[in-house]
Design a protein around this nucleic acid. Structure first.
Lengths: 171, 171
DNA sequence: ATTATAGGGTTCTAAAATGGAACTCGTCAA
DNA sequence: TTGACGAGTTCCATTTTAGAACCCTATAAT
């Protein structure tokens, strides 16, 4: 595919990357989770050029990941806040944190740790099957054709070739 | 920060994005999990220009995420395979899949579903606390200064200002 | 009343990243 | 001997980015 077609791929990873697959966007989201809300605060925190930030924020609002909330009517000033769609990125950020903690820190260790307010412990969350609660990994998880592909095959909008290799695949 | 400084940020998200924060890299990783291994197969699968693919594969090898395995001595042909460091990206990809399934599919639903071979069920994995096993979200997870920041504060390599807002933060 | 400042945007140019096509260079198979 | 394959490279046009300067409105300071 060409990059402009990425978001029309029948692949949730590709479609998600179509929104977040650039240098800055996920850092903006990270800051939003840290309660950064205003244009100038994002700019200070990230050091991103203004027009780039402006562009990214608008795209995230268009994508429904952030919403603008008026806080100064006269000057038309807005805060940028996570929508439910944006808040749902929490696991994405946490997997980045965990991977970075394991593979991309210096000798000082994890910059930040997380305390789970429900149990009070410092937690390293894990990714488990919602049926048996066992931790999952690439070897125990096999992809199968889902409705998103199956329906397109039925309607003849996809070739089995495109969908083909799925059942011989690790992940 | 400027982008070149991103990987020196004391932030695991920033450091992870320094490797994967571009259009193609995570799609290459996705394909690697799908057992795509050879240059031409990546190219066919992705439609990425060859020199771009070449560059990305080399960077991933340098980063220790992929390794080259000789499969044809005479012609010096290599396969690209995930290292343990690369395999550890599985949760990252799965969170992308889940977010995309929830927020970026058409009406046909999830393109791909996953069966957990341990229990035999179609699974929607969830992210749980490793102590109490409760599912986590932004509200129940509070960041605290970890050793990576604490040690730098002690050595005077960071200002409390940089570390400051951590304890009033959601995520 | 005048000036300064904050917040948010634009516009311009130079530098970097990207895409597309053509070219190379050993093998291998017909 | 010719053609094709796999894995690159090289060159050039296009797009994306960064950095700086400039603009505009409304409040705050003198």
């Amino acid at each position: 595919m060409r990059w402009e077609e990425v978001d029309s791929q029948v692949c949730s990873i590709a479609r998600t990357l179509a929104i977040f697959g650039d240098k800055w966007t996920l850092l903006i989201i990270r800051d939003a989770f840290r309660r950064v809300r205003r244009f100038s605060d994002f700019q200070k925190s990230l050091g991103i050029p203004k027009h780039r930030l402006s562009d990214r924020l608008n795209k995230l609002v268009d994508a429904g990941v952030l919403k603008k909330i008026l806080y100064d009517e006269k000057r038309a000033r807005y805060e940028y806040r996570l929508t439910p769609k944006g808040l749902d990125l929490f696991p994405v950020l946490m997997t980045f944190v965990q991977w970075g903690d394991r593979w991309a820190t210096d000798q000082d260790g994890s910059p930040v740790v997380f305390r789970h307010s429900s149990c009070g412990e410092i937690s390293q969350p894990k990714y488990v099957c919602n049926h048996c609660e066992e931790e999952v990994n690439a070897r125990t998880f096999q992809p199968e054709v889902g409705s998103g592909i199956a329906k397109k095959l039925l309607r003849g909008e996809m070739s089995t070739d495109d969908a083909g290799r799925l059942n011989e695949v690790i992940y």
